[in-house]
Amino acid sequence: MTAPKHMDSALLTDILRRMLTIRIFEEKTAELAESKEIKCPVHLYVGQEGIAAGVCAHLDSNDFVFSTHRSHGHYIAKGGDLNALMAEIFGKETGCSRGHGGSMHVLDTRVGFMGSSPIVAGSIPLGVGGALTNKFLGDKNVSVAFFGDGATDEGVFYESVNFATLYKLPMLFVCENNLFSTHMPDFKRQSNTEVYQRIANFNINTKRVDGNNPVEIYQEAKTMIDRAKEGKGPSLLECMTYRWLAHVGPDHDLDIGYRLKKDVDHWKSRCPIKHVRDLLFRMNELSEDQFVRMQRDIVAKVEKTVAFARTSPYPKETDIYDGLYKETV
């Protein structure tokens, strides 16, 4: 079996590693939240890894990414520092936001991860601002805003899409449609649940893909990013997916009554990591042993982030005002 179009085994292995890193990091975070060692609320990305990995595989540190409350996956896929992320969730001085932001406000400017905001849709116009900057710099890089389907219920989403399309900005909107806005299913919120169709009237290039198929995501994102860099304007990629865990925290939200165990099980059977792993198996580019070794290496790496976070100092009480204003140079 040969590699899918525009892809080779090295690239597929890279995407697999990114997804697996996210999965193992998030499962560890869930465990620490369960045991109450982590008190900061965590919105986990388990099940949706293929989207961050498939899109970010196209980006370098000069491309911007903006994210949401569910940001760990995007941060990791963009190459963010794992130690700094875990330390931030622990509220430590060594965290990527120096213990000021917690899980919902992460940033790593060195890799172009320009921040996350838990105000639903709040980071979408920020992303368009990044695209405007890139337009000034000549369309050489793109800006990507990841957001959920709940964000498309906010007015600012439409303002942002209109502006980006009007000015043909090098922008990629990635809607991770996991069917729920906290507890509310799409059909109870939206007169038209097909985001890509609803937004197409803005004359923006849009497509809906299987959000648990990282190959499809990678390929479609490539077309959209190439297009943006050619000055042809923004696109919206709607990725149909599902979060395996609760809206917030390590549980499954099965006790609340808004979703059923059989749905969760169905989506678990469509695991994006398994999808790429099995593809590499079939291509004879990955063995069971190699996969187990990859997993083991990542587990060890994630364990080190926990040790790093545990032993890092907390911010000093006397430094509480640090960072309120930037010193102008």
Binding site: P125, V128, G129, G130, S143, E159, N162
Partner: peptide, 10 residues
């Protein structure tokens, strides 16, 4: 709100 966010992002 959109253009303010766009300004902040830029």
């Amino acid at each position: 709100n959109g253009i303010t966010g766009i300004s902040v992002g830029s």
